[in-house]
Computed example of a mutant assay.
Amino acid sequence: MLNCTFDIIIPTGPEDVAFVPRVVDYVYRCFENLEHIYVLTAKKNFSKIEKKIPANMPYKLIDENDLLPNLSLSIVAKILNECCPNRRASAGWYFQQFLKLGFAQSIYCKKYYLSWDADTLPLAPISFFEDEHLLFNPKKEYNPNYFRTIERLFGYGKQMEYSFIAENMMFSKNIVCEMLAEIEESDVEGVTWLEKILHASNLDDSMPAFSEFETYGTYCSVNYPGLYKPRHLNTFREAGYICGRKISEDKLRVMSFDLDTASFEMRHAPMFPYNLPQFIFNNRKRFKKMKSMTFRQIIKKVWTKWLGKQSIDKQLIMEHLYRLPQQRH
């Protein structure tokens, strides 16, 4: 029987800072064998999160740039610019994946830790242990580039018909550390495991080329067959379309009768007025710029934009009239 206690890590980017306190609350409610909750985020976000999470909750904020000595957003960006100049994915996209793997090498990590998405709420108790197995939720996603990178790192590609990419993953500290050590011993260019992963991800393709969950799941399939057992959860990835992140407790309670998890991505904006938080977040730079403008400058900018739209509409109307058949007199 596996030891069933575990910690949870929640990597949190700027778009999820306002929502993650609610995620922490629901995670704390739904997992009985949970010991600690670690929110990995930039230090500038600490005060905003602390204001909304009760002090008696077993959580800890960790500066994402201080988790490991050689792992930070600036380091990832620097390596990425050197080895993948034509990449599609951003440094932040890679960085949050490296945080999930790098946590295994940190001083906080114990035997098992669950990585949980900062935009997802658990709506019911979920088990991740069954006898001698660790449980995961298989998905249908497929990106061949993920497996081209895996093959560069380990010498083998896709092993299972399903995908390991989901809203969560229970990691084994020992296996993650072993996998990262094996990556560092590979003949891929670079010294550290994150350098080698980024160099292996340098594919001449527009699609992203690395998945931490797909890499870890494939590694376990080869080296620890049978350890992970698929378990299907009822998940709803587009829950944000209902009422957005301001959804009421009553609506979530109703959803919990059919769902195990509900995700609220920022890009899944509901109808007005529930879309206001997303609208404000997506236009925060524009609002910040407007604060430094005079009233006259704002009116001029709006007027110029309106005139531009009118000229475009007039052009479309003229083109439409030109295509109409001429009436005969």
Results as ranks from 00 to 15, higher is better:
A269W: 07
A124L: 09
L194W: 15
L324V: 03
C243P: 00
Y94T: 03
T215M: 10
F31R: 12
N56G: 11
S263F: 00
Y274G: 08
E195Y: 04
S211G: 10
H320F: 11
L233M: 11
F95K: 03
Y156K: 00
I8W: 05
A18Q: 11
L123D: 01
N86F: 10
H268F: 07
A77W: 00
Y38C: 04
L276H: 09
F272G: 09
Y219S: 03
S115D: 13
E50W: 03
K288Q: 15
S106Q: 06
N65H: 10
S263V: 00
G217W: 04
Q97K: 01
F164R: 00
Q159G: 02
R284Q: 14
E35Q: 15
L203T: 05
N168Y: 13
G240F: 00
E195I: 02
V302Y: 09
F95T: 04
Y156V: 00
P85Q: 06
R267Q: 06
K44C: 10
Q97N: 06
P69I: 08
L180P: 01
V27A: 10
P58F: 10
F6S: 07
N168I: 02
C83F: 02
D313I: 14
T294F: 02
N33F: 06
A18W: 04
G155R: 07
S74L: 11
K110E: 12
N81E: 15
E15I: 03
F213H: 02
I175D: 13
